[in-house]
Design a protein around this nucleic acid. Structure first.
Length: 429
RNA sequence: GGAGAGGUGGCCGAGCGGCUGAAGGCAACUGCCUGCUAAGCAGUUAUACGGGCAACCGUAUCGAGGGUUCGAAUCCCUCCCUCUCCGCCA
């Protein structure tokens, strides 16, 4: 969330952010509620001061042995105390309403982010050549079927539609890619994390999935736990409530996890096969950095995610998201899209975001500056590095041959036991 | 899941109804002293919010949330976490 002081001092800027991001503008309501909250707080502080003094005088009277005086003072103190309790009751309500409004104020987009919807996104870079095929190419569903490496129907039987089952070399490829990606990131200084796949409500508020995305997550009612929609959640919350030393920063983590998304209401052509699924694998990158470093760290984080695609030799483009297309919590976002020739479109495989102190305020992640001074909030960033299902779509479609086989990218061969090509082999009945 | 022990400042650790934002120690910082270092002496060292130009003042915070009381780190209740034992189970 934003600093309430910042909001008070930059009302128009915050309102503009709400407009540009397409979020409901609660700023007016928030300011009214904040006045109420502050006045109430001041009143309570004052009353408590009075009550404390009376209370202390009770002790003095008792010590002096003046029972009558003690009783009289006690009664007066009791009245004050009851009065405070009433005010506190009111404060609880006001505070809860205030917090709710605070959680609904989006982060401010960076200055260089284009204003507008999806159409205003800017392609800032393209890498690799889009290949031409001199035969009729198959899409990933056909390839998955021919090679016996993907089974959508049986996944639907077991769990529901959009729960794919990777089979044989399909599953092996997923495993190899996860290992390859983690190795790339580890080599570049990221500490590998194997996180919990369930997270509690506090964690979801901390990384800002709640309130906005609550309905997009699977929820386990019995324990009030959520299946993580991304390992950003457990990883960013790793340091929730902590005070780090400046010398400990920056902290880089990479985490593989399965991810779970309800994707309620999204059906149709966009969701065929592996394009949009309820459970998918992803390797995530998370950074905790000094505020003055976060812009630079954002660029290098993008480069880190790109490294995966370059290693796998997949043509991709980098998109700077416009205000209306970026997430609630983000200050600036790059998306990485890879080319899928049979789909004839770009598939998003990574979102690379700088949140500034938006998440760290919610999760209360601060650091102590060298040489003292007030505690400051760290800046957090994350990027997918990268998500698997669409990566498979692209690799299969790009790597296909006229014979219906799939060539394995050179960098992945060592992770594939030296195998260079997926050919039709054991097919489950 | 059951029984027990515990959770206090950067760390260790005392407190078990008012004089405690919290003794004492360690660590860190500042000054003095000193060929250098060590030791010694004196002092400083939590966070948030509100008020004031400021020195400063007020309020809250001793795992979290409720309660009892004029007054709670201290008593009661619920929950969370850690440890020990038992049970159950990949």
């Amino acid at each position: 969330m934003l600093d309430i002081k910042f909001i008070r001092e930059n009302i128009e800027l915050v309102k503009k952010a709400c407009r540009d991001k397409g979020e409901p503008d609660v700023v007016g309501d928030l300011l009214i509620k904040d006045d109420e909250r502050r006045e109430l707080q001041a009143e309570i502080d004052e009353k408590r001061h009075e009550q404390k003094q009376h209370s202390a005088s009770v002790g003095e009277a008792i010590k002096a042995g003046d029972k009558k005086k003690a009783e009289a003072r006690k009664n007066k103190a009791k009245t004050l105390s009851d009065n405070i309790k009433q005010l506190e009751e009111k404060q609880r309500v006001v505070q809860a309403e205030w917090e709710k409004l605070m959680l609904h104020v989006p982060n401010i987009p960076a200055q260089d982010v284009p204003v507008g919807g999806e159409d205003a996104n800017v392609i800032v870079k393209e890498w690799g050549d889009i290949p031409k095929f001199d035969f009729d190419i198959r899409d990933h569903l056909d390839l998955g079927d021919i090679l016996g490496i993907l089974d959508m129907e049986r996944g639907a039987k077991v769990a529901g539609s959009a729960f794919p089952v990777l089979v044989g070399d399909g599953a092996k490829m997923a495993r190899g890619l996860i290992a390859l990606m983690l190795d790339i990131h580890r080599e570049n200084g990221f500490v590998e994390i194997a996180p919990p796949y369930l997270a509690n409500r506090d964690a979801m508020v901390g990384s800002a999935q709640i309130p906005k995305l609550e309905d997009d997550m699977y929820h386990i009612q019995q324990d009030d736990l959520f299946l993580i929609p991304t390992s950003e959640v457990p990883t960013t919350n790793l340091h929730a409530g902590e005070i780090l030393a400046e010398a400990e920063l920056p902290i880089y983590y990479t985490a593989y996890s399965a991810n779970f998304r309800r994707e309620a209401g999204s059906y149709g052509a966009e969701t065929r096969g592996l394009l949009r699924v309820h459970q998918f694998d992803k390797v995530e990158l998370v950074k905790f950095v000094l505020p003055e470093e976060s812009q630079k760290e954002h660029e290098s984080l993008l480069a880190e995610a790109e490294k995966v695609l370059q290693t796998l030799e997949i043509p991709y483009r980098v998109k700077l998201l416009a205000t209306g297309d970026m997430s609630f919590a983000a200050n600036k976002v790059y998306d990485l899209d890879i080319w899928a020739p049979a789909e004839r479109k770009w598939l998003e495989v990574s979102s690379c975001s700088n949140f500034l102190d938006f998440q760290s305020r919610r999760a209360n992640i601060r650091y102590r500056p060298d040489g003292g001074g007030a505690l400051r909030y760290v800046h957090t960033l994350n990027a997918s590095g990268v998500a698997l299902p669409r990566l498979l779509v692209s690799l299969w479609e790009l790597g296909q041959t006229e014979r219906g086989t799939i060539k394995i990218p050179v960098a992945l061969v060592p992770y594939f036991g030296g195998m260079e090509e997926i050919i039709p082999r054991v097919k489950i009945p």
